[in-house]
Design a binder for these strands. Structure first.
Lengths: 158, 158
DNA sequence: ATAACTCGTTTGTACACAACAAACCATTTG
DNA sequence: CAAATGGTTTGTTGTGTACAAACGAGTTAT
């Protein structure tokens, strides 16, 4: 009776867990970020820019998964703070390549430093190794969204 | 050379990564959840309720980290769908203990099943073991927010 | 019993985030 | 030149959540 579907079992779903964890992290992050004049979205963008330097806005928008029009506003803010720079691409002068400036990198570093405390608070239950593992997994999961190399972002490495 | 600061290194901050991953997951999740009449918040709540049965609303609100007043609305919806039940506590009749109903459990199972596809899509870069590890880490990180056992939620196990 | 407090509830305000649409300029490509 | 593309601007909409104020019902302290 009540067969035990050993294989086809849906296993564990982490969507809800991620959602929950992200929200908690985010709420705390906001409070330490505001003194720095940043909001979560800015941090995500800056982080992305450090890891994928010189992206064009188009690829940034797919990378960050936010609408182009919204991205413009975001970048406007960051640029007006002097944290990033837009330069016209040499090859195609319609394009803007976005660059993290020196002050931008510093501000990001400050933010991450401030964030350390928040993570300590949220991730108390995880020891150092576990946190590192988590970081790695998130990094892997986040970097390549799917093995879809047919699109415009061909040169990366696939 | 280029010393390897093994210990004091600020290590990696995962706040931005989590934030980003959560948003991508969430957007996709919404599309498979809407046919089921659920939204992400509902799923989080139902999941919590399955794992921490019979919580009072107060403890739920700290667990979910959402305001009490907002929790009421959320539970109202779930109750009107018949997915949860509120019962007055015998000990203290001001309290409501919240229960996942049978239909609620089923709906949750459906949702998680539907979510499998989304996770497959978002977490392509992770193999089975890695996903399980991720799940475990998230579970640990999420369950006990901090070893603060002085409060009202004393009976759990600390 | 009366007062003070607590749990849940309702209502309303405010803000952040983000999707989406429409129209625009500059540039490249056909 | 026309058509398509990258970025920009403006404005609308919806959603999630915090927060405050005030209430009823029930509890606890005095």
């Amino acid at each position: 009776m009540a067969s035990l579907p050993v294989v086809s079992q849906p296993a564990h779903r982490c969507a809800a867990l991620i959602d929950h964890l992200a929200r908690r992290m985010r709420m705390r992050a906001e409070t330490v970020l505001t003194p720095l004049g940043l909001r979560p979205r800015h941090l995500v963008a800056l982080t992305m820019l450090r890891d994928h330097a010189e992206s064009t806005q188009q690829s940034l928008s797919t990378l960050l998964q936010i609408d182009r029009t919204n991205l413009v506003g975001l970048l406007n803010e960051l640029e007006s703070w002097g944290l990033i720079e837009r330069r016209r691409s040499a090859e195609d002068r319609r394009r803007h390549t976005v660059h993290l400036t020196q002050p931008g990198a510093e501000r990001l570093a400050q933010a991450e430093f401030a964030l350390a405390a928040v993570e300590d608070e949220i991730l108390v239950s995880l020891d150092g190794d576990q946190r590192e593992t988590l970081y790695q997994l998130l990094q892997i999961a986040g970097n390549r969204q799917r093995p879809d190399c047919a699109g415009a972002m061909a040169e990366i490495d696939c």
